[in-house]
Simulated assay, not measured.
Amino acid sequence: MFDPTIFDNLKTVVEGAVYDLDTNDELIAIIDRSDIVDLAKFTRAYALSFQLRHAHQLTCTISLEMTLQHIANELLHEDVTNTGCTVTVSFSFSATHVDCQAVEQALKRIWGEQRTVIQTLTYTYPKHERYTHQVTIDFERTINESHVDDLLQMIPYIIRSLEQLLLYAEQK
């Protein structure tokens, strides 16, 4: 019989919560899903991407990752403080101008000052009229089943972040 890992259990929780917003509340539209097992590095990665139904220019992706060390800690009952997986929430949109400081301040008001907000701007050379703006909330810790409520409580934060970032995102 299959014994699910912490990663599998958390993936199910995230997937259920986000799919409920898509099917029951019709607040969002899921646009992509990725569930990868890397046998070369023995890692797991799951990502679920979605948009607000009325705002297709802005995408959110929730990602879970479990490394070989996380898996070994769990299966061998070694370092229980690092048993679990990591979670990140990222947003991406296209814009001609981005006020990175304003974006960071807006997200820290939602997520808290202690959160690390990483922003990456990219453009295609030589045409760089538009930037792709990637904003990632990094929680800088390992999570496990004791954090299920935290994962579920992230959903309203994500929706508020999407609504706030719409002010910075522009139509393509």
Rank of each mutant, 00 (worst) to 15 (best):
K108T: 08
I110R: 09
E78T: 15
E113K: 14
V80N: 10
A95P: 09
V87P: 01
T96D: 13
S94W: 09
C100M: 04
S92E: 13
T86Y: 01
C85K: 02
V103Q: 00
E78K: 14
T83P: 05
L76M: 15
Q101S: 08
L107Q: 00
Q69H: 11
A106C: 08
K108G: 03
Q114M: 12
T122I: 05
V117T: 00
T88I: 03
A72H: 13
A102C: 02
T83E: 08
N82V: 12
E74H: 11
S90A: 10
T120H: 13
E78M: 15
A95K: 04
I71Y: 13
N73L: 14
V98G: 02
S92Y: 07
L121P: 01
L68K: 13
T83L: 04
S92R: 13
G84R: 01
V117G: 02
S92I: 09
I71E: 11
Q119M: 05
V87N: 01
T81P: 08
G84D: 06
F93P: 07
V89N: 01
Q101R: 03
Q105L: 10
L121G: 03
R109M: 11
H97A: 12
E65P: 00
E104H: 04
E74V: 10
T96W: 14
A106E: 06
F93H: 03
S90N: 11
W111V: 07
F93K: 05
L68F: 15
A95H: 03
Q119E: 08
H77F: 14
Q114A: 14
G112D: 04
S92A: 10
L75R: 15
T81C: 11
K108V: 07
T81Y: 10
L107I: 00
C100F: 06
T86F: 00
S90Y: 09
D79E: 14
K108Q: 08
I71P: 05
I118Q: 10
Q105T: 07
N73R: 14
L64G: 01
A106R: 07
E65N: 04
T120M: 13
G84V: 04
R115D: 02
T116Q: 09
I118K: 10
H77I: 14
H70K: 07
V87Y: 02
H97W: 08
V103F: 04
H70N: 15
V87E: 03
A106D: 03
L64A: 09
A95F: 06
C100T: 02
Q69R: 07
T67F: 02
I110K: 03
A95L: 02
T83K: 04
E74S: 10
N73K: 12
Q119V: 06
L68Y: 09
A106N: 04
T67D: 01
L75W: 13
T83Q: 09
A72V: 14
V117I: 09
L76F: 12
T86M: 01
H70V: 04
G112K: 07
T96F: 11
T86P: 00
E74M: 06
M66I: 02
V89K: 00
Y123D: 13
N82S: 14
T116P: 08
H97D: 09
K108M: 06
F91P: 02
T81W: 12
K108H: 05
I110A: 05
T81E: 13
S90V: 07
H70T: 04
Q69F: 09
T120D: 08
V98K: 00
I71R: 11
I110F: 13
V117N: 00
E104N: 01
G112P: 06
L107H: 02
E104Y: 03
